[in-house]
Write a protein that binds this DNA or RNA. Structure first.
Lengths: 257, 257
DNA sequence: TCAAAAGTGTTTAGCATACACCCATGC
DNA sequence: GCATGGGTGTATGCTAAACACTTTTGA
């Protein structure tokens, strides 16, 4: 019951200190085992899952709120984080049923509370390093874990929709900007980078052409190290040249694979 | 003073019937005289200009609200209208100064009114037919007119920013989707279509290559008519084949010019 | 008859794609 | 030694870009 008290207090804080009827939901992508992963929270004591999210404090920029929410869930800062769509359907979800699911007593909130009203959600997507992320659930959730994008279960609200659109946006972004700085470790091999692209695009790429293309963008530095440990020729390690990578991000042009 | 009364009533309606602290702003593009135009409203009795905008009713989808707002300003429905960004800076504008500008007595609103608080704005952009649009100002504005995108004055709030980002989004969209159905008349010549693309892209294109490219997409039908009236060979008229155009819109792939 | 702009096809260059052999590593 | 997967270069085809002359029209 102590837990409920905490939840109640948290609800009050949200009710009083955040912009009403607006929320933020984050689709957080990671890459591990050649799989694209997405971060999900289990709602309350149920086995229903949803995206990490939160509210915007009265004097906070929406982008700041997204950064804060992401940091709370992953401990990470300075990662790729971008708004991709605002979900404005008045029927997106009914908060009443949501409170039932969560076993929250609605009497804790006045019937006028904006938390019971329709909510417009600003969707952000983030690209984070899977190994560095220290993930943890929020006040309303029991568990927090990575799911293979291909195995995302049925989510609460319109969150399946959000994941799909985030993914579509991410794929489109691949045409304009390099990706990988945020999803891979600092040092990585060319095959690893290729797996990432293949996973994101959902199709296989030619090794030789991929390498040629990537190197032609002049954002990679080949190190004098190789990755050992598997029963084959050790691949070279590469690293993004930060300044050139940032430049490419700004230019936003031609980045086909 | 009657006008003020109307404004006051309208304010009350907005205050009571719309989602608090959220607004919609529309960047409406038209094409005329080989210029890309954008629709602006003059605020109150001032010579300050801003984008057309509005609020979302409690049970209205944000997209529906945008459609409604666009219809109110242009009389047009069924046009291209798409969300492009949500502006969430808590300092986007101060409504107090806004009410001063408008000569609205703040006592008409309670100090608790959400209309006095920070507002998050969902930005939409629309492509409309310049000739068909019957434009008119809203309750808060005196005038409504088209401005050449290159000559947009300093706008209120962060609206210059919005126009720039809408334009950037529109240009990017050119890579994925055909444009023109919404901006041109039903029948148009190839040079007219080319001017549109040149204006949007801000660079000149080769006549022969442009025509080849456009025809290759198989979304145009050449009519047995020509456009006469100028001192040169009469160009053929073309028309978009609706079904094929829609198909191309959905595919969202490869549409370089 | 002249100026202005549209109709039309071919050549070229650059980029994307397809493709194969040798080499290093761990078991 | 052998299976696995990485390192590397070339040939081909396709698409994009460059380019000029003739024709029609209104003034």
């Amino acid at each position: 019951m102590d837990n409920y008290k905490l939840i109640n207090e948290h609800l009050k804080k949200i009710e009083n200190e955040t912009v009403p009827q607006v929320s933020i939901d984050c689709t957080v992508f990671g890459f591990h085992d050649n799989q694209l992963k997405v971060l999900l929270l289990s709602w309350g004591h149920t086995d229903k899952w949803c995206l990490p999210g939160g509210r915007i404090f009265h004097h906070e920029h929406a982008d700041e709120a997204a950064v804060r929410i992401l940091k709370e869930r992953t401990s990470l800062e300075d990662v790729f984080l971008q708004q991709f769509h605002t979900f404005g359907d008045s029927q997106r979800y009914k908060n009443e049923s949501l409170f039932n699911t969560l076993s929250i007593d609605p009497s804790w909130l006045s019937s006028e509370s904006h938390l019971l009203k329709r909510t417009i959600s600003i969707g952000y997507y983030a690209l984070v390093n899977f190994e560095q992320a220290r993930i943890r659930p929020d006040e309303f959730s029991e568990a927090c874990s990575w799911w293979d994008v291909k195995e995302v279960p049925e989510l609460l609200f319109d969150h399946n929709n959000m994941v799909q659109l985030a993914l579509k946006t991410l794929r489109r972004q691949l045409n304009y900007q390099p990706v990988g700085y945020n999803l891979l470790s600092e040092k990585f091999t060319m095959p690893e980078l290729q797996r990432l692209y293949e996973t994101l695009l959902g199709r296989e790429l030619d090794r030789r052409n991929f390498q040629k293309k990537m190197l032609s963008y002049d954002i990679l530095e080949r190190l004098d190290e190789r990755k050992t440990g598997s029963a084959n020729k050790s691949p070279f390690l590469y690293r993004f040249v930060r300044e050139k990578y940032e430049e490419a991000l700004k230019e936003e042009i031609l980045f086909g694979v």
